[in-house]
Design a protein around this nucleic acid. Structure first.
Length: 393
RNA sequence: GGGCAGUUACCCAAGUGGCCAAAGGGGACUGACUGUAAAUCAGUUGUCAGAUGACUUCGGAGGUUCGAAUCCUUCACUGCCCA
């Protein structure tokens, strides 16, 4: 039950003991537990936040259980109201299908491909009739839904709560039924969907209610808000080791503990020790964060790549040197510095580029370029801001 | 179906005829500093133009006015109350 977050001790105890029971039962029946976690393909890229539950799945997998990576092809059409204070725009079926393809593939950076079942919940949800849906709805009261945090908040603020949003929990609950789930993994924002909807529906339909494994929620690079694409604070898992390392280094110190606990490979004991060392001054906070970044990068890439990402980072940001692999650009006749910046998309508009010059944010081979309307002086490395580099030839 | 309130830039939000390219906050970006793309401090944050200039923007479309984010008409959307 490591790294779990129920927000309620009693619930946690109950779930832990149910899990023990369930394990015993499964052993008696000589079968592994059926474990799943669902992911709605609402964007093309998975980020670190998604992987917290995936790593839990991986643990079950390593222990020999039967793990399903469920792609919420149907639930994505509705949009989960859980993590929102706003209704999510409804995706088209084509978009969902397109996203779904890239999802599983990225998931295998964490999960064992040979032991993972990939399924789509459209498989059974598309077959439900209106009557079926109504029957499912009979198991819940409106009050139960209105009591949920997110709905209650929106209610209070006078924001719209659409009727279709309430279907989401029913759909997810039905997933559990369709797969005869023993264990469902999900973030604490899924508490209602898992513990209330899933368990209730299973019971109502004559199954043993599932055991919910509720993981903590990873904050984004701002260190406060939940990691989510729409907030723009994500650490993508597919953007390269260097980028991932850098993004992890930009996480504020205050969120380091959460990151270590949820996303690193260290045991709680090792993490406690690390925090003690930082507190006592034995370990520099910057170095602790580097260790953290290196470890997490190592999970998705390799430890070698993590080391080189770290070297790259030190070079670029601590010693302010030019990183190794940077894009190249062929200078054309008569181009000004401004032209090059716009053409290479180092700035989105002329006005913005001009501001960068005013703010001394443009350098060529380390020398500040004061204005953009001059012909490009000479070949060299053009740096815009801290992070954008271009080798101009 | 009726009544009332609302829709402002990436997000929240002020502005109720000219002093509005539009306060404030968040975010983002840049710089300084540093322990890092952390923290802190300062600046920038519609587009275009060799400055004080031009153009587009305040839900959509029309209109009144010398002049509209602000007034009127209409349409769309949201909330609340009544049914």
């Amino acid at each position: 039950m490591q790294g779990t977050e129920y927000g309620d001790e009693d619930l946690k105890k109950a779930m832990a003991s149910e899990l023990r029971e369930r394990l015993k039962l499964a052993e008696k029946e000589g079968r592994p537990l059926r474990v799943y976690c669902g992911y709605d393909p609402t964007s093309t890229d998975l980020h670190l936040g998604h992987t917290i539950s995936m790593r839990k799945l991986r643990q079950f997998q390593d222990l020999g259980h039967d793990v399903t990576f469920l792609i919420g092809s149907y639930t994505a059409l509705v949009g989960d109201p859980s993590d929102k204070n706003k209704a999510r725009p409804i995706l088209t079926e084509e978009k969902v299908a397109e996203n779904a393809v890239t999802y599983a593939e990225q998931a295998f950076r964490v999960l064992d491909k040979t032991k993972t079942k990939v399924r789509y919940n459209g498989e059974w949800l598309s077959k439900l009739t209106l009557v079926d849906l109504i029957r499912l709805g009979q198991n819940f009261t409106v009050q139960q839904f209105l009591a949920r945090d997110n709905f209650a908040n929106r209610m209070e603020k006078g924001e719209a709560i659409y009727l279709h949003e309430t279907f989401y929990a029913l759909m997810q609950g039905y997933d559990a039924v369709a797969m005869e789930t023993d264990v469902q993994v999900g973030g604490s924002d899924q508490l209602f969907n898992i513990i209330v909807a899933g368990r209730k529906l299973q019971e109502a339909l004559g199954q043993k209610p599932l055991v919910g494994i509720i993981t903590g929620i990873l904050p984004g690079t701002d260190g406060v808000q939940r990691m989510s694409k729409s907030t723009g604070n994500v650490v993508p898992i597919n953007s390269g080791a260097n980028d991932m390392f850098g993004k992890l280094m930009s996480v504020p110190d205050s969120a380091m503990g959460t990151y270590l606990r949820l996303a690193s490979r260290w045991s709680p004991h090792e993490i406690d020790q690390m925090e003690k060392d930082v507190a006592s001054g034995a370990l520099h906070p910057r170095d602790a964060k580097m260790k953290m970044a290196g470890d997490i990068v190592g999970i998705f890439y390799s430890d070698e790549e993590a080391v080189s990402a770290q070297e790259n980072f030190i070079k670029t940001f601590q010693q302010k040197e030019v990183p190794d692999d940077i894009p190249e650009y062929d200078l054309k006749d008569g181009q000004t510095v401004l032209d090059v910046i716009l053409d290479a998309k180092l700035a989105p508009s002329k006005s913005e580029a001009r501001r960068l010059f005013d703010q001394k944010g443009v350098r060529l081979d380390g020398e500040t370029v004061e204005r953009g309307d001059i012909p490009f002086p000479h070949a060299g490395v053009l740096q815009v801001g801290k992070r954008r580099f271009l080798r101009v030839k």
